[in-house]
Design a protein around this nucleic acid. Sequence first.
DNA 1: CTCCATCGCTTCGAATTTCGAAGCGCCTGC
DNA 2: GCAGGCGCTTCGAAATTCGAAGCGATGGAG
Lengths: 118, 118
Amino acid sequence: MTAAPKPRHPVRGSTTGRPLMAALDLFGRRWTLRILWELRGGTLGFRPLQQRCDGMSSSVLRQRLTELQEARLVERDAEGGYGLTPLGKGASDELRGLYRWSERWAAELDEVPGGKPD
Amino acid sequence: MTAAPKPRHPVRGSTTGRPLMAALDLFGRRWTLRILWELRGGTLGFRPLQQRCDGMSSSVLRQRLTELQEARLVERDAEGGYGLTPLGKGASDELRGLYRWSERWAAELDEVPGGKPD
DNA sequence: CTCCATCGCTTCGAATTTCGAAGCGCCTGC
DNA sequence: GCAGGCGCTTCGAAATTCGAAGCGATGGAG
């Protein structure tokens, strides 16, 4: 399994170890952003989380959760559920900005419905 | 080639067409976030951009640029260079928040240098 | 206690994505 | 004319992701 990216360490696509590059590597993996988004409301178990992520494959979910735990964005609570650490909540808050942006995005694409009609 | 995700259309991992899901699909593809980040300072040509992205493979760069143009985050200027649209600048601004977050992330991981020492 | 559902998680072969080196035609400067 | 950079394409290999199947544990319901 590919290791979780960490700041101060070289990551895929950058050897400098700059924190942002580690973050871009981490968040550029499929499902990572989605998992943070789905956990924003509170703790979830493995299978419930999988269902919220439109039935994403369990093997990748396991992988992502391990990476996010290593990166200290996700931790398990007393009952074994997965939840965001304060750090993870911070990242998830940044996603809220992305959420607002995506609404603008949708609105603007509606205005200009894209070059060639079918 | 996989099509670029668009709001109001089903995307990988979600059939609802919610704008955020399209955004999460788009941004969850490798190099997409990095490209937006590298273009934040202004227009860049294909090869210069490729070099800034640590020599990422040209085939994928072409693919990502096509997707980002379809999504109207990137456009070409008069000289043919690649630059951000106002929409793309908005997305790139959200990344600035992520940049600040990643610094905190690095700082906190320095404090708690990871569970088991080797 | 037995049955049944759900849970967290693993395995593994197939499908998809990404890589990376090579090369094409075009243009510019020397 | 020729070297170098440009945008871009091709293609086989490597890495990632998928998705179905199944394991042992747990917790009711009957």
